[in-house]
Computed example of a mutant assay.
Amino acid sequence: MRSTVLITILLIISLALPAAAFSADRFTLTIEENGDAEIQFDYTLTWIERVAVYLRIAEPEKELKHALERNYNRPVEIKEVTSGSVQFTVDRLAQTRYTHEGTVYTVPVLDFSSAVTALENYWFAPLVKVDLAPEIATVTFPDNTTEEFGNVTIIPELVHTIK
């Protein structure tokens, strides 16, 4: 009952305010030798979004987990969630191939726009402007070679060979 009253009050207040913005700050993907991936996604939430997350009305980490599992057909484990970040492990995100030139790692296209679709299903969607293009997106391979992207919603397929 209390949470219903609080939600109603927040909804009324938020209707009087301009749209808030969820913004992606940094996306870091680290590929392990076996192709597993460690992902850290840092973001900024407005006070409306923080309240929704605190009350468990919105669970962005679960939406991102489901989007990753659906898009890449791989098990995803949530490692840690804070008010400004989420960490995941994705089993065998990168395909590994052994050739005479070395180990070839292929990271699939990473598309953040599917998470926007999931977020649009929440009641507060009309109140929020979602920016899922991280200011900086970094992909690091086992030999510490990195690829960096700025303000993109899609990271292209990456192929890297380690001799």
Rank of each mutant, 00 (worst) to 15 (best):
S83M: 00
S83F: 06
Q40R: 15
S114A: 09
V86N: 04
L110T: 06
S85R: 06
E49F: 00
G84N: 12
V107F: 12
L158Y: 07
Q40Y: 00
G84F: 03
S113N: 14
T99V: 07
H100A: 15
Q95H: 05
L93W: 08
R56M: 10
T82M: 07
N73W: 07
E157V: 10
L127T: 08
E69T: 09
S114I: 11
P134T: 08
S85V: 03
L45M: 12
H66Y: 13
Y72V: 10
H66D: 15
P156N: 14
F141Q: 02
P126R: 14
A125I: 04
V139N: 03
F149G: 10
E77G: 03
K65N: 03
G84Q: 02
Q40W: 07
E69D: 09
P134H: 08
F88E: 00
N71F: 01
V51Y: 14
D42Y: 03
Y98R: 11
L119E: 10
N121P: 02
W47L: 11
Y43L: 01
L64A: 13
Q87A: 11
I136A: 04
Y43N: 05
W123F: 15
V86M: 10
T117G: 00
T117I: 12
V90D: 05
A58V: 06
V130I: 10
P60M: 00
P75Q: 04
T117M: 08
W123S: 09
V81A: 00
Q40N: 13
Y98F: 11
E147L: 01
L45Q: 08
G35E: 03
E135D: 13
N144E: 10
T145I: 05
L68F: 14
V90W: 03
V86Q: 04
L158K: 05
L64F: 12
A52E: 07
V107R: 00
P134Y: 08
R70Q: 14
S83D: 09
L127Q: 14
T89G: 02
F41L: 11
F112Q: 13
S85K: 09
V109M: 14
Y105V: 02
S83K: 02
V128C: 04
K79Y: 04
E135Q: 12
H160R: 09
W123A: 13
G150L: 01
N121F: 12
T44W: 08
K79R: 15
L127Y: 14
A118R: 12
V90L: 08
Q95T: 12
I48Y: 06
I78R: 00
V76S: 03
V90S: 01
G35P: 01
I48H: 03
F124G: 03
E59N: 07
